[in-house]
Computed example of a mutant assay.
Amino acid sequence: MRFLIIIPAHNEEDNLPFTLDSLQQQSFKDFTVVVVNDGSTDKTLEVIVRYTDHDSRFETVNLQKSAHQPGSKVVSAFKNGLKTRNIDEFDVICKFDADIILPDNYLETIENAFKNNPEYGLAGGLLYVEKDGNWVYEGNSNKQHVRGPMKAYRKECFVQMGGLRETLGWDNIDSILLENLGWKEVVLPQLHVKLIKVKGADYTIRPADYYGRYFYFLGLNRFLAYIASAKEAARSGSAAFFFKIIKAYETCKTQKLELKISKDEQKAINDKRWKTLKKKWLKM
Rank of each mutant, 00 (worst) to 15 (best):
E156N: 05
V136R: 03
L181T: 09
P149Y: 12
D209M: 11
Y214I: 03
E156M: 02
A123T: 09
L181Y: 15
G148P: 13
N221Q: 08
F114H: 08
K199M: 08
K231Q: 12
L220H: 14
D202K: 13
A208I: 05
K199N: 11
K131W: 06
V198R: 15
V129Y: 08
G121F: 14
K151L: 06
Y203K: 13
A208S: 12
I176H: 11
L164A: 00
G212Y: 06
G162R: 04
G125Q: 15
P118A: 08
D209L: 09
N172D: 10
G121R: 15
Y214R: 12
R165P: 00
A228P: 11
L181C: 10
W183V: 01
L220G: 04
K184L: 05
Y211T: 00
E166Q: 14
F217Y: 07
Y216V: 02
D202C: 04
R147I: 10
L191F: 06
V159Q: 15
V198L: 09
G212Q: 09
A113N: 12
A228T: 11
I176S: 05
V136H: 02
S229I: 02
I196G: 00
A201L: 14
F223W: 14
K115R: 11
Y211M: 02
Q144I: 12
L218N: 03
E119F: 11
G163K: 03
G124S: 09
L178I: 13
L164E: 00
N142W: 14
I176K: 13
V198G: 02
R206H: 07
W183Q: 02
Y120P: 01
H192F: 04
L195Y: 10
R213G: 04
Q144H: 13
Y137L: 11
S229N: 03
I205M: 06
G139I: 07
A201K: 15
K231R: 15
Y203E: 09
H145D: 05
E119H: 11
F215W: 10
K151S: 04
E119D: 13
A113V: 10
G212S: 07
E156S: 06
G169M: 03
I173S: 07
G148Q: 14
W135V: 01
P149S: 07
I173C: 05
Y226I: 10
R147Y: 10
L181V: 10
E179L: 08
G219Y: 10
W183E: 01
L126H: 07
R206D: 05
Y120T: 06
A123W: 05
Y226Q: 13
A123E: 04
Y153N: 05
K199D: 11
G163T: 01
G182N: 06
K115D: 05
E138M: 11
D202G: 03
I176W: 12
E156I: 04
K115E: 06
Y214V: 01
V186W: 00
N117Y: 01
P207L: 06
G139H: 12
